[in-house]
Design a protein around this nucleic acid. Sequence first.
DNA 1: TTGTACGCGTTATCAT
DNA 2: ATGATAACGCGTACAA
Lengths: 351, 351
Amino acid sequence: MKAPTLTDVARHAGVSYATADRVINGRGKVAQKSTAKVLQAIEDLGYVRNVAAANLSQSRVYRFAFVLPKGVNAFIQKMRALVSEMSARLAADRITAHLYEVDRFVPGALAKVLEQVRADGHDGVALVASGLADAVPALEALRAEGMVVLTLVSDLPETARAHYVGIDNRAAGRTAARMIGLAHPDGRLGRALPVVAGLEAQDHSDRFEGFCETMAQQFPHVAIAREIEVQDRPDLMERHVAEALDHAPDITAIYNTGGGKSGLVRCLARLPANRPRPVVVAHDLVPSSREGLLRGLFDVVLDQRPDEEVARALSIMRRASDKLPVPPVEPIVPAIYVRENLPPVRQAQQA
Amino acid sequence: MKAPTLTDVARHAGVSYATADRVINGRGKVAQKSTAKVLQAIEDLGYVRNVAAANLSQSRVYRFAFVLPKGVNAFIQKMRALVSEMSARLAADRITAHLYEVDRFVPGALAKVLEQVRADGHDGVALVASGLADAVPALEALRAEGMVVLTLVSDLPETARAHYVGIDNRAAGRTAARMIGLAHPDGRLGRALPVVAGLEAQDHSDRFEGFCETMAQQFPHVAIAREIEVQDRPDLMERHVAEALDHAPDITAIYNTGGGKSGLVRCLARLPANRPRPVVVAHDLVPSSREGLLRGLFDVVLDQRPDEEVARALSIMRRASDKLPVPPVEPIVPAIYVRENLPPVRQAQQA
DNA sequence: TTGTACGCGTTATCAT
DNA sequence: ATGATAACGCGTACAA
């Protein structure tokens, strides 16, 4: 009924508590014989170390850092809100989550932030490393010191991080292609316009590649127009997409890998009534894309579920800093929103 | 830096530890004045009760029960596997998850199982109540005794359960309709065939209703054929769908709310090569639906993410039995799988 | 090499 | 109405 304690194990093995402890925590200085006996007792009794008690005895608190890019990007704002929300909820478990911001465009800013994270004595750090490839050495150093490093949203080389928490961006691009293909049944001809923030960001280029791959393979009857880059800027989005639609009246689909969506909404809303609306697939459920769906301007929104990302990041950092085995981290499966399955808008809850 | 303890609070308030304890745990017998002082101190110091310590002092273990229907349904099998998997992972946190099976077709079976759950002294129970509406009184009784009751997959009246963990089945049906609508662009005519396990199951009838609602409202150019009931039986599925496709050659879409999918795969595979394939939307990612997607026979699979359901259920039961506030439980957003975003097959991991 | 005993923050019991 | 204190299971400093 009651779980066996280490004291039980020691008794069962006929050794002292301390010896049993030395065995399970591998602090050496134990005779072969004792080790064997303890191991056997653990086996017999089915002993499992009580993490809560261990933490209590050390007054252990978990300190985790989230590093997010500065800026007004709606998706990142949502992540920020989620982190502080989670943070409040985890107080009872002695887990703290601190938020750090890094300016993507100031060289060396990230290094400084990471230094701060280190100085603040965190057990783990999760960072959105989109366009931050130069962080690799600093992260390797942090990891060498025992800190748990996670990438969020956009991945980095394996040496830089213990796990990646986020969607499979290539697969997301392929999925978008499939959705657009669905809307071109029976070989109906068409042309798809890809709109990206910038191809230097790993996540965007992965999505773009996956998209092209599936379009070409599965839906050759739908051509791919030259992609447009809009740098997270709604104004550019609005202008460039409008131009593209003007020049190529045969465009039947748009795939936006993310960024500047509000401009897309405006542009689509302004389309002449007699022009058939293109199928529109975009990324991330934020106010503008929600509006797009509700107004019938967007058809499908792929969302990487930031809430799940934050929750998973926390749970992984916790397990990892307990040195427990971390179960294989599979990519997060994006949610696919259409007009009919939008979740209710949820106000941030107060403290 | 270090979180304040109740001792700190007591000192700050100028009372003894026991008094402070009485205040936060509402065990009465405290003077107004002391109460006020303690409350103030809690506020000042930002005290948060340390759940781990509390649990330790009581040798508390969490005992949770999962009640699943007996049978070979692939989805339920997956749930079973997930529960035992989770259970292993939670041993270190002193959380146990026990599995109970109930025969849906034996009247009174559920009552017996619930009695067993009660006798085994669980803190909470999560049950898949699909077609088990007669359980309501028994569940109300359990709740009255302080047990946390959750419905999984399919909901029951609010009096019977504290929370529902699962997808919004109506919204799922609407989403399926949208997917089928996407595949009928520009008013392209069509006819959609709904295939359900049985409309007496709440989850299936909700999906069916949502489906019809959106088809009628948004895609009036696609007619809805008379629905077929197949009772979770692949053989019936295969036969009846084949008949329907024969009688109505204008069927361009199929929506299966779940159950008997392997029969659907077989039936579709046997379609004459010259017949255009209908768009097929089905529920739950299990081996047969995965095969359907890979072979190009299914187009879209809505999955209710049983892993997430189990995880959420556990986390809610834990918080609820700690008497911590349970954050609002939003419906789980189904994953939408297509051929291009299938997760790798994952073998059950060993103990 | 091995063993003992204290502290972690809380609950519960037994005084005052 | 309030206060003191022994558990709970673990890590660890210290003793043997």
